[in-house]
């Protein structure tokens, strides 16, 4: 099965397509893919603890998805506490993962 990276740079509530992203990732994971979801820019808004858009992250993480939030983007938006299932990360970590290779990268 594939090793996939999904980068979410948009607020999940900003565009209608954002609602489809967590179910898509869940389905990819269910199919056996190793999926990393990296939240950057406005994508981290959903990672704020208590944010409705991020309520699915805990369950998503439970299915094996690695959910990471860019530390710079979080700081810029005053996000200090992350939703359950989300880990604080940075672009060094993302670059390390890309250096290791993915079968596909989807940048949303």
């Amino acid at each position: 099965m594939g090793r996939l990276l999904v980068v979410d740079s948009r607020d999940l509530t900003e565009y209608a397509g954002g609602r489809s992203l967590p179910p898509l990732i869940e389905e990819l994971c269910r199919q056996g893919h190793d999926v990393t979801l990296f939240l950057v820019e406005n994508g981290v808004i959903a990672a704020r603890r208590g944010a409705a858009a991020g309520l699915s992250f805990d369950a998503l993480s439970g299915t094996g998805v690695h959910i990471l939030a860019d530390e710079v983007a979080c700081r810029a938006r005053g996000i200090r506490e992350l939703a359950p299932g989300v880990c604080l990360s940075d672009l060094d970590h993302l670059a390390d993962k890309i250096a290791d290779g993915f079968d596909n990268i989807l940048w949303y």
């Binding site: 740079s9 950057v40 820019e41 406005n42 710079v72 672009l91 060094d92 993302l94 670059a95 390390d96 890309i98 250096a99």
Partner: peptide, 20 residues
């Protein structure tokens, strides 16, 4: 327009640091 160019350049810098 949006933050994308800055993010791309931040990422590019990290990739270059890794010899990519």
């Amino acid at each position: 327009q949006r933050e994308a160019p800055t993010t791309v350049l931040r990422l590019a810098e990290k990739l270059l640091e890794r010899g990519i």
